[in-house]
């Protein structure tokens, strides 16, 4: 893809300057970025506020308190900051209902990009929260 085409495509794909300000819009943004480690100081100030109109911290608090979104640390950055990844809670909700094969998890996560769902699943694996009834995923 030529650089100028990519430069036009990326902001639109990320919904930079989106008109929507709802909590559903925020959930979509988190789903798109889930598993990505970002400095905690940057997530709300630069990333979410550019993608959700009239972003307010209360919106994210609401999603976290509902269990829709989970945050996980990804290492410190000096004494005042650290990297954090937002993870959509739908995988956890599904696994809390019953052990599941991947297609069921993918559906529960809302579909979309398979790699994004896999990244989130493996975040949970490496966090020690999720396991598999075979050793095969680790061997592969």
């Amino acid at each position: 893809m030529p650089p100028e085409v990519l430069a036009r495509f990326l902001p639109a794909w990320h919904g930079i300057g989106a008109e929507s300000s709802s909590i559903d819009r925020l959930a979509d943004v988190v789903f798109q970025l889930q598993g990505l480690a970002l400095p905690a100081s940057v997530i709300e100030r630069d990333v979410l506020s550019a993608r959700v109109r009239d972003y307010r911290p209360r919106l994210l608090d609401e999603l976290v308190s509902m269990g829709e979104v989970v945050w996980a640390g990804r290492g410190s950055l000096g004494q005042q900051d650290g990297r954090v990844a937002l993870i959509h809670g739908r995988l956890r909700e599904q696994l809390a209902r019953r052990p599941s094969f991947f297609p069921e998890l993918y559906t529960a996560a809302g579909g979309g990009d398979t790699d994004a769902v896999l990244d989130a699943l493996w975040d949970l694996v490496w966090a020690g929260e999720v396991t598999n009834d075979t050793f095969a995923p680790l061997r592969a």
Partner: peptide, 11 residues
């Protein structure tokens, strides 16, 4: 990531 194997569950 391998995915088509086994069943996933909470630890």
């Amino acid at each position: 990531h391998p995915r088509a194997v086994g069943r996933w569950s909470l630890t």
